[in-house]
Design a binder for these strands. Structure first.
Lengths: 185, 185
DNA sequence: GTCTATATGTTGATAGAC
DNA sequence: GTCTATCAACATATAGAC
């Protein structure tokens, strides 16, 4: 019987969605329980603490981003990989402008919590930085580090502004600019 | 007697600092009271609600940024104004990498609160966008809107990444890149 | 205007029956 | 494994003496 329970999965999905739209601190266990249809007391069978849920969400988002990045890393030249990644933000521009970037928002919120939660910020942003840097290095650029910084900065900057203005068009415009920049290299 | 009380000012200063390092939701009235040396019950003589404090901090930061922008707007050509603004981030790179941007962090946090708090996000980011756009327009650029987007995106992107990595050098590197971009126009 | 004491509500977490 | 009931801590906000 317990083998077929999908409660843990439902809890994670609800937590992920609620944390994205409300933030981690703002989201209560009661919110997550209600949204997932799991009784409040039962949450503690699956997660030891609220902080434990947060760590799980961090891992979930990191893995989701890594899956996306691998999908963009087909046996191809690095420039095409970067351009292929840029196809993604416009497909979720409405989510991005409504809730911000799942990586960036968590990054910024967790960096103002205590240890060990704030240590997740570094891991989250490194996923994007490391992959980007690898692509610029494969392009033979000695300034790969700085280029990766600019690339990820564009992604995070556009998400924050689009979210603040609630304007999906910001994503379109900035992706277009970033695309032109990559193509010109 | 009450004329010389600086309690309200002390409360604002403490709230501003605490909200910057811990976030608004995370910061309790007790924190602010203790830090400012004002008894908890007395806070409500100066502010009706906690939300009221937040709105005051938003205004404070907007005014501080406007003051800085005016300082960069000496009777000069627009390109020099943008470059003069870029002198600023490196002077506070340690604060930026420790706590993030006072505009951007508040922007991202408040956009996931309910109305009317989330409406402040738009006002906060518009301060930077409007001023930047005005400079690019004065430079005669028809794409001033997109240029302002890229400029502010760089500022916010570098702050988020520097904060996540706790690395002031990210500010230096990205400001240098942004400076080169502006100079090339 | 100032401050102590406290009301009121919410939240993370636990106890214990089933 | 599941769920109800509840605890203990904390946060916002108020009452009321001074």
């Amino acid at each position: 019987m317990p083998r077929t329970s999908d409660k843990r999965e439902r809890l994670i999905r609800s937590a992920d969605r609620l944390i994205l739209s409300q933030g981690f601190k703002q989201t209560t266990l009661s919110d997550i329980a209600a949204d997932s249809g799991v009784p409040l007391g039962n949450v503690y069978y699956y997660f030891k603490t609220k902080e434990d849920i947060c760590k799980t969400i961090v891992d979930t988002r990191i893995e989701a981003m890594q899956a996306l990045l691998e999908q963009c890393s087909q046996p191809d030249e690095p420039k095409a990989r970067l351009l292929r990644f840029l196809d993604y933000p416009p497909t979720i521009k409405h989510d991005l402008s409504q809730d911000g970037c799942p990586i960036g928002t968590l990054c910024y919120e967790l960096s103002r919590h205590e240890r060990p939660l704030n240590e997740s910020s570094q891991r989250l942003i490194h996923v994007l930085l490391d992959w980007s840097k690898a692509q610029f290095q494969a392009m033979g650029r000695p300034d790969a580090e700085a280029m990766a910084l600019q690339f990820v900065s564009n992604l995070q900057g556009m998400s924050l502004i689009a979210n603040a203005l609630e304007d999906p068009n910001v994503i379109e415009q900035m992706v277009q600019r970033t695309r032109s920049w990559i193509e010109s290299l």
